[in-house]
């Protein structure tokens, strides 16, 4: 209504940049290789997205508060190590998985405690728990490469012969996250806090509790992602989960989540983000791009996403400020006179 015509398109593009990018890259890869646009390949992309996607859900919660969680990869490794070691010791899957997830969630609690109670900045805390967590994982596995028994390799099993378990878990977690963020007081308060912490405190919100909650959620998500990843890969090695934080943050940001907090969503946002990243990776394989070069291309895309995020926020703000002014400007002098007169009466 108050958006001026020539800016409307620009604003539309800026707001939906990830979706447009998704379509653009999909079309580009499809033109390059006809097998890329097959249903089978699309399924591969979704399967490959599941574990990182689940991490990215938790990351979105954290980013919405204006924080960051760099320790998700380490959390995955701790969970993975515990699951793998327990299975190696002869425990069943039903015991190993809950214990692993509990361990990962506890690691998230540790972050939560340091950030919300001790009040150390999230970046430093999670950088610390990233290093410490990796160390802990290496310690308990003695840096071995541990293969898991077949009963753990359920990654390719399809429920009702249709949906693979990893995709189902991912979808369920997206659904729960969307409901929490959109339809519960807790979710809306996360957005409020991300917008303005001081105002949130003044409104009587328990910001300590909210902050703690998002890091625990992030730990839990990383732990679940770890289990999913083991079920697909079939083993836990010393590099398990390494670098996942970068992809998770990138997926959230590509999906429109702002690093400054308060803006973003899990669906479609983060889901599009992660599919986009996996699609690029998949497409690069189709194009037979050098394996080492792939990492660089991926990193470039991610940096581009962060750049766009910064530009977009600034530009949207500028465009909208202009719009407000223009709305107030009254083009027809006769009407202006009338309005201003009534204002001064």
């Amino acid at each position: 209504m108050r958006i001026q015509t020539n800016h409307r398109w620009l604003l539309f593009v800026l707001r939906n940049i990830s979706l447009l990018l998704f379509v653009f890259i999909f079309v580009a890869f499809s033109l390059f290789n006809e097998r890329f646009a097959s249903l089978r390949n699309f399924e591969n992309i979704i399967l490959a997205s599941a574990d990182v996607g689940i991490v990215a859900i938790g990351m979105t919660f954290v980013l919405l508060t204006g924080g960051i969680d760099l320790s998700v990869g380490a959390t995955m490794y701790i969970t993975g190590a515990i699951v793998a070691l327990m299975l190696e010791d002869g425990w069943g899957v039903a015991a190993a998985i809950p214990c692993g997830i509990l361990a990962g969630t506890l690691w998230g609690c540790f972050n939560a405690l340091l950030i919300s109670r001790v009040r150390i900045i999230p970046f430093m805390v999670t950088l610390g728990t990233l290093t410490a967590g990796r160390g802990l994982g290496l310690l308990i596995t003695e840096s071995r490469h541990i293969s898991v028994p077949n009963e753990m390799r359920f990654g390719a099993v399809r429920v009702f012969d249709l949906v693979p378990i990893p995709v189902l878990v991912f979808a369920l977690m997206v659904l729960v996250a969307v409901v929490i963020l959109k339809y519960t007081p807790f979710g809306r308060q996360i957005y409020a806090m991300g917008n303005d912490v001081e105002a949130a405190k003044k409104a009587g919100l328990d910001t300590t509790r909210l902050t703690a909650a998002v890091y625990i959620i992030s730990g839990f998500c990383a732990a679940v992602a770890s289990v999913i990843s083991i079920s697909q890969v079939g083993s836990v090695s010393a590099s398990f989960g390494r670098g996942i934080e970068f992809q998770a943050i990138a997926a959230s940001v590509l999906g429109g989540t702002s690093l400054f907090g308060g803006v973003g969503n899990v669906f479609p946002g983060t889901v599009i983000g992660i599919l986009l990243i996996q699609m690029i990776q998949n497409g690069l394989i189709f194009m037979r791009v050098d394996l080492y070069l792939q990492e660089m291309v991926k990193a470039l895309v991610i940096l581009f996403a962060v750049f766009v995020d910064a530009q977009r926020m600034g530009l949207i703000k500028r465009l909208e400020r202009r719009n407000i002014r223009l709305e107030k400007r009254i083009a027809r002098p006769a009407e202006a006179k009338k309005l201003e007169w009534t204002a001064w009466q």
């Binding site: 519960t184 007081p185 809306r188 308060q189 409020a192 917008n195 409104a203 919100l205």
Partner: peptide, 24 residues
């Protein structure tokens, strides 16, 4: 809170729940 709706701003510190669910 600029990122929330007007209605959400009014009730941010105490949302009414939908029946016995935890939903707003």
């Amino acid at each position: 809170f600029n990122n929330l709706s007007i209605a959400e701003n009014f009730f941010i510190s105490g949302f009414p729940k939908w029946g016995k669910t935890p939903l707003i």
